[in-house]
């Protein structure tokens, strides 16, 4: 289990000028077991924050610690032992000649024994419906299979913290549901945590227990998802917008006091007939 502390972080892409801050004075902690929904309009700084957590960017001010390690001093390799990220359009990152090699790569880097790698790769491939393609080229897979492989190659590393950027953009109904079941499966293990940046609030409500809202580089709200749904100002000010589904959930839980998890479950049952 890993704890991520974001301490008073500001970031500017123009390091020399130190103005034009994309993020400004952001402080937030991600604890083991947290599943955090990172929300905010286009261009608010969500992806930048994720890259900072991964150590791909260094804060201009402030620091980010993963447990006790400062990310601006640790190597990306060190950070990736605990935290793994699934990027937007992850299927663009394949490089291996076979699905098996693609899945084995990260494990080899960690120095696992060959039999151990083989066992893990086959287990994960089965879970993701990729077993029969193990000796095929990743580039010969269909769009949906490619996306499954890209996620499988991260999940196989068994990170303590999983970070995902816009996982549902451009996904159809079935793959969106597949993404939900994969993420839920990951969170079943105790003390794993998740940070997901998304515009798809309906998707987010099905997997998250906490939310953080960024607007114009500032953290303007944080708390649990149920409180977010009771929060009127964030929505009335136009920082976030409700979908029909989220506004319905919001009204049912705040005006009628029905349990949030129960509402989500019933809504899922309504669409289940289509699966």
């Amino acid at each position: 289990m890993a704890k991520i502390s974001i301490e008073d972080v500001s970031f500017s892409y123009e390091q020399d000028k130190k103005n034009n801050f994309v993020l400004k004075d952001v402080s937030y902690s991600i604890l083991p077991g947290d599943s955090v929904l990172l929300l905010g309009p286009n261009g608010s700084g969500k992806t930048t924050l994720l890259k900072l957590i991964m150590g791909l960017l260094k804060p201009t001010k402030g620091k980010i610690r993963i447990d006790d390690a400062d990310t601006s001093k640790a190597s990306v390799f060190e950070i990736s032992k605990k935290v793994s990220m699934i990027f937007q359009n992850p299927e663009k990152q394949f490089f291996a000649e076979t699905v098996r090699e693609e899945l084995s790569f990260g494990l080899k880097n960690r120095g696992l024994r060959e039999e151990e790698i083989k066992k893990k790769v086959e287990e994960v491939a089965k879970k993701f419906g990729l077993f029969e393609y193990l000796d095929k080229s990743p580039f010969d897979l269909s769009g949906g299979e490619k996306r499954r492989l890209s996620i499988a190659s991260i999940i196989i590393l068994d990170p303590e913290v999983l970070i995902v950027d816009e996982p549902t953009a451009g996904l159809d109904f079935q793959y969106r549901n597949l993404m939900i079941s994969i993420i839920r499966g990951f969170l079943e293990t105790r003390n794993k945590s998740l940070v997901v940046a998304t515009h798809d609030i309906d998707f987010g409500l099905r997997i998250a227990n906490k939310a953080a809202v960024i607007n114009e580089g500032k953290l303007v709200w944080s708390g649990d998802v149920v409180s977010l749904l009771r929060e009127e100002e964030i929505f009335s000010k136009g920082i976030l917008a409700h979908t029909f589904t989220s506004s319905l959930i919001s009204r049912v839980i705040s005006q009628s006091n029905v349990d949030f998890q129960k509402v989500v479950k019933i809504l899922e049952e309504l669409t289940e007939g289509l699966m």
Binding site: G40, P41, N42, E166, H199, I201, G238, L240, A241, H242
Partner: peptide, 8 residues
């Protein structure tokens, strides 16, 4: 696909 809810 890449728009936030309000923009969409």
């Amino acid at each position: 696909s890449y728009l936030d809810t309000l923009s969409a």
